[in-house]
Design a protein around this nucleic acid. Structure first.
Length: 507
RNA sequence: CGGGGCGUGGCGCAGUCUGGUAGCGCGCCUCGUUCGGGACGAGGAGGCCGUGGGUUCGAAUCCCGCCGCCCCGACCA
């Protein structure tokens, strides 16, 4: 940092959780609402979500999925059908029990209170996830193998009554997408699960500039009711892990519970193999924690609500209009360019405010490129270009024409530099380990990062270690993930194994 | 659900112990001076002090109840 004073107090090093909250506030992304555990997503934050939606949705369509929409309220009996699933979500369910309010006057205070009336014969659960209600529809829709695969996605809100909410990372209500598919065979369903898992990994890397480790969850960490759960795990700047997306192979658990069956090619009645996969507004929390610095938010260009902000410098009244015109003209030219398939999002901030105030506002909002144009620049045909991934004091007075040639390249460079920075951070904080003593010693520190170990332990052994150090196995990285070697013998059992486990603290 | 803390103008707080009818900083509005930069001066707007009851001549302040929020745990995308 160029100066000792930072725009965000405290800094990451001083108090990471508080820093996170302050970044959100300074960037005007969201705020806590009067409704417990729920947030108001403000335009600058919602803009990020809209871009994530658009870009992800394109990937879903390109892989053959269609969007649909299902009810917010799920009959309680639906949830009861899959025992493990019901149990997994039971403690987080908000329940709707009435359908009417009656006005009752308090005899003492004289005030009117609205009292729930009209109790429902069967309560509804506000969806914590939609497997059961979508499964019920699938059961109606699917009759023949010719109806398969059925590839559906839903963009929706869900509710999980979390004990300890945190903006974007864990809110009682959150926005997400949930894919639900049904297939003829086990292998096809597993392929689908892996396909979407791969899509998530790619999305995080190519759109959010977050390097995630794709892996499988252990039995302990699996989605309730799933046979396999795949995850993409991100490391954020306090070295904790965040599960940024999951993809589940549900086997025939849900199809048997809900009778999602079809007549097969051989004429026999079979149960479908189903999958589900989801990502949420938690991705926004992840990207904040992955990229932002002590001066505020740093946005990866593809999901930046505005990618380029132009600040007119108008020191003299007589040249003011010329400067404003030049700024608008530049913005318009830039908007005709595309970066990764989308027109550039360019904003001219012509508010009548002190330049410094405006500049810092956009720094805190994480805009990738800031441009300043003043009267002098019009004469010299130059512009002042500043990048959010570089120190605040860094200025590049470049030729306007040259900048127009390079604008999208600069956005690409910013994306690459964010990704490279995050990758380096992650890699230096993954420590290979195949020794139990070292393993125990590692977790005595506050922010120790991840351990990578050979692993052949049981579910129970995993649980003991997890409880002891408040950690868990974040994932067993899938084949093809290149990680530092840590031997072939399990650090706990000593048995030979090809399985690797990543251990860490998590959000 | 356990343990702690807090509810006072938009935000952050002081005032509460030792009752007398509300103050500071930031922000906001106006005017002016500045300004290739998070500047300064002057003036101004904005509060039934979370809520219900009680004590009192008088309650932000004391007593009782309720509600809400935040932080730390167990749970989780």
């Amino acid at each position: 940092m160029s100066s000792e004073k930072t725009a965000i107090t405290p800094t990451r090093a001083q108090d990471f959780p508080e820093w996170y909250q302050q970044v959100i506030k300074a960037a005007d992304l969201a705020e806590n609402s009067e409704t417990r555990g729920c947030m108001v997503i403000k335009p600058w934050g919602y803009g990020i979500w809209e871009l994530i939606q658009q870009q992800m949705d394109r990937r879903f369509k390109a892989t053959g999925h269609q969007n649909a929409y299902f009810p917010l309220l799920i009959p309680l009996s639906y949830l009861e059908k899959e025992a493990e699933h019901a149990e997994g979500f039971a403690t987080e369910c908000a329940v709707v029990t009435h359908h009417r309010l009656e006005a009752v006057k308090d005899p003492v205070t004289g005030k009117t209170k609205m009292i729930p009336a009209g109790e429902l014969a069967e309560p509804y659960v506000i969806r914590p996830t939609s497997e059961t209600i979508i499964g019920a529809a699938f059961a109606r829709w699917i009759e023949s193998y010719r109806d398969l695969p059925l590839l559906i996605n839903q963009w929706a809100n869900v509710m999980r009554w979390e004990m300890r909410p945190r903006l974007f990372l864990r809110t009682a209500e959150f926005l997400w997408q949930e894919g639900h598919t049904a297939h003829e065979t086990r292998q096809e369903a597993i392929d689908e699960t892996r396909l979407m898992h791969g899509q998530y990994e790619e999305f995080m890397r190519e759109h959010l500039a977050i390097p995630v480790i794709p892996g499988e969850k252990t039995e302990n960490e699996r989605f309730p009711g799933a046979e396999m759960t795949f995850t993409v795990e991100a490391m954020v700047q306090d070295k904790k892990a965040i599960q940024a997306g999951t993809s589940h192979y549900l086997g025939q658990n849900f199809s048997k519970a809900q009778n999602i069956s079809f007549t097969g090619r051989d004429g026999t009645v079979q149960h479908a193999h189903t999958t589900s996969w989801g990502t949420s507004t938690r991705m926004i929390g992840t990207l904040i924690m992955a990229h932002s610095d002590d001066d505020g938010l740093v946005l990866p260009p593809r999901v930046a609500t505005q990618q380029i902000v132009i600040l007119p410098i108008t020191p003299k009244e007589d040249s003011k209009q010329a400067v404003l015109d030049a700024c608008q003209a530049l913005a318009e030219t830039l908007r005709h360019q595309c970066y990764r398939g989308d027109p550039l999002r360019v904003h001219v901030d012509s508010r009548d405010l002190n330049g410094g105030v405006k500049k810092w506002e956009w720094i805190k909002k994480g805009v990738p490129i800031r441009i300043e144009i003043g009267p002098r620049d019009i004469e010299t045909r130059k512009i002042c270009v500043q990048r959010r991934d570089q120190p605040i004091s860094e200025k590049d007075f470049s030729d306007k024409e040259a900048f127009l040639q390079r604008a999208t390249d600069i956005l690409a460079e910013i994306h690459d530099s964010l990704l490279a920075r995050a990758t380096e951070f992650r890699d230096t904080n993954i420590t290979p380990c195949n020794d139990l003593t070292e393993f125990h010693a590692h977790w005595t520190n506050d922010n120790p990062g991840w351990l990578l170990t050979p692993w052949s332990g049981t579910r129970e052994e995993e649980e003991v270690l997890s409880k002891q150090h408040k950690i868990n196995i974040r994932c067993l990285p899938i084949e093809g993930v290149v990680l530092p070697s840590s031997g072939d013998e399990c650090f706990l059992t000593g048995k030979e194994t090809t399985v690797r486990a990543i251990w860490g603290r998590s959000y």
